[in-house]
């Protein structure tokens, strides 16, 4: 056996040993905690639960970079996270940002989706969602026909 191989074996054995020791010690720790401080453990578990819902919104934040928000036409503002979490699961955010409604109009659209498209109840979040939508995506008066938007080019 070469000296190098022996060295490698010793290293592996010692790593394994440390791992075992760590496992045994942490198990003892958990058992002791459960025995003497059960409230503390329950507190942690509860925290873990609420963190899960935070993680969900964090996941949305990860996915929704400022660049991506800009591309689909969404703007920062109160209620944005709720809109992302509730209004982009089934359809594209672009379907939201193409549209313009008053508060009543947005509520009507939500009711239509709930009645015919299987959309869930929004509960206490509805107000914040409708506020966001009717603030940032409100109708602008445009009359019976708008002037043409023109990109000029030279025609031979």
């Amino acid at each position: 056996m070469k000296e190098e191989d022996v060295k490698r074996m010793i290293r592996s054995v010692s790593i394994l040993g440390f791992l075992l020791l760590f496992l045994v010690l942490s198990s003892i720790g958990v058992v002791l905690l459960l025995q003497y401080q059960p409230d503390l453990v329950q507190g942690w578990l509860a925290k873990e639960k609420s963190r899960n819902s935070e993680q969900i919104s964090e996941a949305f934040q990860d996915e929704w970079t400022p660049e991506k928000l800009e591309e689909v036409g969404l703007v920062e503002g109160e209620g944005l996270q709720l809109v992302l979490a509730n209004c982009t699961n089934c359809h594209s955010a672009k379907l939201v940002t193409q549209n313009r409604f008053t508060r009543e109009g947005w509520i009507q659209v939500i009711r239509w989706m709930q009645e015919t498209q299987g959309f869930w109840e929004l509960g206490e979040n509805e107000d914040a969602i409708v506020d966001y939508l009717s603030t940032h995506f409100a109708p602008e008066a445009q009359g019976r026909r708008m002037p043409l938007e023109v990109e000029w080019y030279s025609l031979e």
Partner: peptide
């Protein structure tokens, strides 16, 4: 997209 007030759907 030309209707006013706006109506729901793809513009």
């Amino acid at each position: 997209g030309e209707f006013y007030p706006p109506t729901e759907g793809n513009q």
